[in-house]
């Protein structure tokens, strides 16, 4: 059957060719996600059970099924630049219900990792990293809480890095190994 013509030569050529067009797609993107997520994302048959289970879907334009499609088709730019990528609460409801035994949640996590490599990441994620780098805690202690702890008969600071700051050096070495703090500082400064 001949393809319908729109009298746009470029589009006509595309339509005549019923193969899947790779112009916007990066097959490597799919492969990278499969590796990082350690889930069989390529098996998604777009049933939509994930979106139907998602607490973020009814209150936003975030659709996990759409991200699954973008993963399979290798639509890297579309996936990584979409702000909805950051609306997944990682509740794993979709993962427990997916009839193909895929973990869509882990696909989102892999995409976020890839977005970070392009400096696409919300500030609050980087700020948590900075806090942990400096104190060992994402939510550090404060004076009100120290007073409350003392009243309870607990040490004012918990027996974590707060009481043993000599351990912070090791934590910084781990984070620096991956250059995370450096990147976080750089991205936050650029904002």
């Amino acid at each position: 059957m001949a393809a319908k013509t729109y009298n746009i030569p470029e589009l006509d050529t595309k339509l005549a060719d019923r193969r899947y067009h790779l112009t916007d797609a990066n097959p490597e993107f799919t492969q990278k996600i499969l590796k990082t997520s350690r889930t069989i994302a390529n098996m998604c048959y777009q049933c939509g059970t994930c979106t139907g289970s998602c607490p973020s879907a009814p209150r936003s334009s975030y659709r996990i099924r759409l991200f699954m499609r973008r993963c399979v088709l290798g639509l890297e730019d579309e996936a990584l630049t979409d702000p909805d990528l950051w609306l997944c609460t990682t509740c794993y409801s979709c993962t427990d219900r997916c009839p193909r035994d895929i973990a869509p949640t882990d696909v989102i996590m892999a995409m976020r990792n890839l977005a970070f490599l392009r400096d696409i990441v919300p500030k609050n994620f980087l700020q948590t990293c900075q806090l942990i780098y400096n104190s060992g805690h994402g939510v550090p202690n404060n004076d009100v809480n120290r007073a409350a702890r003392t009243k309870l008969g607990l040490p004012a600071d918990p027996p974590t890095t707060h009481s043993y700051p000599e351990f912070i050096k090791g934590i910084q070495k781990i984070i620096d190994h991956y250059g995370l703090k450096e990147n976080a500082d750089r991205i936050l400064k650029g904002d």
Binding site: W86, N113, C129, V139, F167
Partner: peptide, 20 residues
């Protein structure tokens, strides 16, 4: 558990770099 740190936060750290 002396010297323990943040777990670290699975949302923040996992989203940025799973290896860390």
């Amino acid at each position: 558990l002396k010297g323990a740190s943040c777990c670290p936060a699975p949302g923040a750290f996992g989203s940025i770099d799973l290896n860390v």
